[in-house]
């Protein structure tokens, strides 16, 4: 007598449970001012320590370099000397006498072009090496040797080949940043779990579908590690390459400042180079975060 009744209860309970609409509970919102206060606190915790350190370093620098006869200018002098450059980055007096914005944008354009090419070629080669054992055996030793060649060692060769500064600089960026992209992509492809390959086999994905639907998403975290190292290296390489090829660009700006003994301008340029390198790195990292969202093992 009891048994069926209990069972009925259980069944209705399950049914009701299954049929019940999912109610989204909105947590009670704290007052807005409180939210702002918390956000301000969180920001302060992250921003204040580096600001304090920078201020202390600047103070030390000022104290060390303000003596007469000091080889390097103190921060106060750097600011006085470069005030015009900071306040008006957009002037253009023809030739290479341009504002810092134009120099930086010329460098960034070279990086954008060289880096895009190396991203495309690097991912393609990485997929090949990761997927084919024979490609790996043939190419990997070559890559391991070539990637140790310093970026600037390629420059004379590329100048000889292209007979022009612009494509040579782009080639140097390409050849510098491609290795980590190839190697990381290959590792990512090789680490695709056998399970995913089995799924693809059972579903009978063709090679193109396998590439787009399994390979790239599965290897994306690795690919972005490579891309992130690559962008850092290309920014390192461009400054050096531009010093040698001349023309408009932040690298040559620094070299030119050195030749005219404008030490303050060098310091300002270094400041910009650092900031932009940081922003580029964050940009690729952010892009990676968006693209690889959900690729973590579940």
């Amino acid at each position: 007598m009891n048994m069926p009744a209990t069972k009925m209860d259980v069944e209705t309970a399950t049914l009701a449970g299954a049929a019940a609409p999912v109610v989204a509970l909105t947590p009670k919102r704290p007052p807005r001012s409180e939210t702002y206060a918390r956000m301000a606190r969180e920001t302060a915790v992250r921003v204040v320590p580096p600001l304090v350190v920078v201020a202390l370093l600047a103070l030390m620098w000022e104290l060390v370099c303000r003596r007469a006869g000091s080889a390097l200018p103190p921060p106060s002098k750097v600011f006085r000397d470069t005030k015009e450059l900071i306040l008006d980055p957009f002037f253009d007096h023809g030739g290479i006498d341009k504002g810092l914005f134009w120099h930086l944008s010329a460098s960034l354009q070279r990086v954008a072009l060289g880096y895009s090419l190396s991203a495309i070629a690097g991912i393609a080669l990485g997929v090949l090496v990761g997927q084919s054992v024979w490609a790996m055996r043939g190419l990997d030793p070559l890559f391991q040797v070539l990637r140790t060649i310093p970026p600037l060692a390629w420059l004379p060769l590329s100048l000889a080949a292209f007979r022009d500064g612009q494509p040579s600089a782009i080639f140097v960026i390409f050849i510098t940043s491609i290795w980590p992209i190839i190697i990381n992509t290959a590792v990512g492809i090789r680490n695709i779990p056998q399970d995913y390959r089995n799924v693809a086999a059972v579903v009978q994905l063709n090679p193109l579908e396998f590439f787009a639907k399994i390979m790239i998403p599965a290897a994306a975290p690795y690919i972005f590690t490579g891309l992130r190292i690559g962008i850092g290296l290309s920014w390192l390489a461009i400054v050096a390459a531009e010093m040698l090829i001349g023309g408009v660009g932040i690298g040559f700006f620094i070299w030119d400042a050195w030749n005219s003994s404008h030490i303050s301008e060098i310091i300002l340029a270094l400041f910009y180079v650092g900031i932009i390198g940081f922003v580029l790195d964050r940009l690729i990292a952010g892009l990676g975060k968006i693209v690889t969202r959900g690729t973590a093992q579940g």
Binding site: P193, D195, V199, P217, T292, G294, T295, A296, G298
Partner: peptide, 14 residues
């Protein structure tokens, strides 16, 4: 025609 249910589910996480 011979679909497999794998031991560790093997759903694609992305």
């Amino acid at each position: 025609d011979r679909a497999v249910v794998f031991q560790n589910h093997s759903l694609l996480p992305w």
